[in-house]
């Protein structure tokens, strides 16, 4: 079964929802693997916020598309090529510095995107944006704190964060490769890119991390359903139960 996404507004929603869902799933994988107990709890709580955000976006998507599909159908019944999350968020939890760098780069972007969606013509998306912005700002404070703590902590933590940033930066240009769908709903994308660069450059400088150059890559875009090898593995675990036992309920 292929679940098609039929309107531009739905395409916008599915990108937002998939991005929050896949990052939530990545953070769920950290449960019991955090560097210490408090941080373990924090990562799971953050995963809950992201999952709750994704759920509301999928509900709005389901309502917009009107195909009698539920949020769960979008989560569990699509294949890799039918997901539209940015490649940044599907990258694995290589180590704690990766978890933090990925979160920080996501949070800065999400804050700018949802701030613009406050002006959405769709009142539900505008209201939801106001709700989730509170959570995103809080998450950003935390992920930025950790960027500084790792960056100016020890030689080892600095080295690991530098490695994570160097590797993850290759997935940043995709965030800014706005297509006609994005441009239709997200105002002032030029300003968004500027905001992101200023905020991230400032944090990296303070954290004593060298800022890598943003180079365009030959990777095909997630907006067309292209991903890195990691998404398929993530989905096979996340979707296992409903795929093996269709229509199972709690």
């Amino acid at each position: 079964m292929v679940i098609s996404i039929d309107t531009n507004f739905a395409r916008l929603l599915v990108r937002l929802a998939d991005t929050e869902l896949i990052l939530a799933q990545r953070l769920c994988e950290m449960c019991s693997r955090g560097p210490f107990l408090e941080e373990d709890i924090a990562l799971s709580n953050l995963a809950l916020d992201l999952l709750g955000r994704a759920e509301e976006l999928y509900k709005l998507l389901a309502e917009t598309e009107g195909k009698e599909l539920a949020a769960d159908d979008y989560v569990y019944r699509r294949n890799e090529r039918e997901f539209f999350c940015y490649k940044l968020v599907e990258q694995p939890n290589t180590d704690f510095a990766w978890v933090i760098a990925r979160q920080y780069l996501h949070d800065v972007y999400a804050k700018s995107v949802f701030t613009r969606l406050l002006q959405s013509d769709n009142s539900k998306l505008a209201g939801l944006s106001e709700k989730v912005l509170k959570e995103i700002r809080y998450s950003l404070e935390r992920s930025k704190d950790w960027m500084l703590r790792l960056g100016i902590g020890t030689e080892e933590s600095n080295h690991r964060l530098q490695f994570a940033i160097d590797r993850l930066f290759r997935f940043v240009p995709e965030l800014f490769a706005f297509d006609t769908v994005d441009l239709q709903y997200i105002a002032d994308t030029e300003g968004l890119i500027e905001e992101w660069k200023m905020e991230v450059s400032d944090t990296l400088r303070t954290a004593n991390i060298q800022e890598p150059e943003l180079k365009s890559t030959h990777l095909r875009d997630s907006r067309e359903g292209f991903h890195t090898e990691y998404l398929g593995h993530l989905l096979s675990e996340m979707q296992f139960l409903p795929r093996a036992y269709p229509d199972a309920t709690w």
């Binding site: 408090e38 709890i41 924090a42 709580n45 953050l46 935390r142």
Partner: peptide, 13 residues
């Protein structure tokens, strides 16, 4: 503050 998240999403440690 010890951690920005606590026993529930609405609490911090």
């Amino acid at each position: 503050v010890i951690s920005r998240f606590g026993a529930t999403p609405c609490q911090a440690l």
